[in-house]
Design a protein around this nucleic acid. Sequence first.
DNA 1: CTGTTAGCGCCTTCAA
DNA 2: TTGAAGGCGCTAACAG
Lengths: 342, 342
Amino acid sequence: MGKTIRDVAALAGVSTATVSRVLAPETKGVTEETRTKVLKAAKSLGYRTNFIARSLKTRSTMTVAFIVPELANNFFMDVAEEMGEKLITYGYTMLLVSSGNSTEVEKKRTAMLADRGVDGMVVIPASSRGDHLQAVADRGIPVILVDRLAEGANLDAIASDNEKGAFELTRALLGDGYRRIAFVGGDITVSTARERLSGFARALAEAGIVPEPGLICLGGMEVQDGYDRMKTVLENPNPPEAMVAVNLMVHLGMERYLLGAGAQAVIAGFDTSEYTPFLPGCRYIAAQNAVEMGRSACTKIIDKINQKKSGFFPREKYGSRVTRLPVTIIRHEEETNGTKPL
Amino acid sequence: MGKTIRDVAALAGVSTATVSRVLAPETKGVTEETRTKVLKAAKSLGYRTNFIARSLKTRSTMTVAFIVPELANNFFMDVAEEMGEKLITYGYTMLLVSSGNSTEVEKKRTAMLADRGVDGMVVIPASSRGDHLQAVADRGIPVILVDRLAEGANLDAIASDNEKGAFELTRALLGDGYRRIAFVGGDITVSTARERLSGFARALAEAGIVPEPGLICLGGMEVQDGYDRMKTVLENPNPPEAMVAVNLMVHLGMERYLLGAGAQAVIAGFDTSEYTPFLPGCRYIAAQNAVEMGRSACTKIIDKINQKKSGFFPREKYGSRVTRLPVTIIRHEEETNGTKPL
DNA sequence: CTGTTAGCGCCTTCAA
DNA sequence: TTGAAGGCGCTAACAG
């Protein structure tokens, strides 16, 4: 079937070792003459190096897996696109895998990815449960968390400053004169939801406002959840003047409900996208920096992989470091007033 | 480091061959007794089979690559999510890779994926150029096209009935009384763009309308392109009464421009998403069936892989078959009138 | 600088 | 049913 290194060696009149040296990622210790000779032979045969065989020997597949809760999520995909691009520059290929928002699935996929020999894993956990991720790390595979944190795992992480984002969002609404503000959506098993709720509460506290229990409408992170929560909120005999949505999906669901009900609301939410300008209720957005997140996830995992390959093992026990990325608060009008066309 | 089959064999007191038999995807020719003995030994050692080694021997990695033009595209990701899910049920893992809308990148990535030994490839081509895909197929790797077709490649494909979709969309607008209809956006090197333009033209012709050259505003498939085209269209001294957008990205860009300009328009476009209900100009949508596309892409590539593995080679020369999936025309109101909440 | 020689971990005839 | 033995294609000492 495919040509092997032996075929090339035979044609070039050298040993397989020499061919291997020439074809290695960094050629060295080979005469320019034999180098070109080998290269010519390889080309004329249409030789392609077999990465499976190489991996078996080198114990490195030059791949990094990125596990996300779902694919149809613009924020995650923006992170992925950037990370994949950057990984390539290091010679790595990114494997993008979905956990379908299930920790069980996540456990299976990560284990299988480990079996397949990925050099490292970057994961956005489906929930805060992270023992299975620690298990992967215990197999000697570098793992880092992105966007969300997880418990039971002593892993480095990169996440937005969610607490501050929600705090600023809420403060902005307070600044506009709204006092009765609701917090809508949020799966309490997901760290971002907890952090955002916490920032929300802090802003209210700072303003001397005691949050009404009826205005904390937790539950879910998906479009359907936002839709359902919104319904509940509006059925409240004394509805809020404004609300903070836990994330873009919930925000979308809320707006969908409002659209169908012909109602209006003032909403502050997370994440921009091409279509947030069209959301009628959207007043403020806390924009996360997906590109920066992808970028730093890449460098961090590459670092870990390199230090593992070079046999350097820091005493893993002094805790995990989480890097916080700043978020930017945007007024909705700024997105659409023509001063910022696209 | 990791335990090997030898460790298990030693502990279980059998040969490596026996262990291999037990651990193979389908165990057979092994006593139930030795089977459990081996399994117990494997478990107690925390043995994990090394897929790299297995692949080198079996010449199968049990992976299928899915190459898409971009990740941040809901339609593509919906297809991906379904396909990935279904592939798992066959024991395959999907590798999702972006070509960044570049045929050059696509060429590199597909070649590299082939080197990495994927068992098959499903690709949404970045453009109509497909020789590099044929090259991959010529290496003996099953390749199929999805959503878009490509030239220079004799590959099976699965795509929506774009011509008919655009035809119906245009007819719907005509039915509403609009006569001067524009076609906006469309990279002519992309098959879907050509097919949709063709359906558009057919509908006009059938209505006895000669399309004005100024109303065919081709160019690009991205948000920015839609934005720019819309600007051009509105600067026309005699602007159209309605328009057909080549795809959702362009549609979005058009609406963004309208929003900034404070203008209105009647638009028919492709693809639904959670946010199409919020697009003010949106009148009709031709909805593609992403789930069905992912599903059939999966079965088709699995078929090809299986027939390759079983050594069955049909005379590849009798052309490629393209399967057309029907699209559904939806009136915008139906999405938001409350009868169809979510 | 180049060649020889062992495997990496697993599968798979071929015998027993 | 089980074991022995020989690779899959490549890399990495170790010699020369």
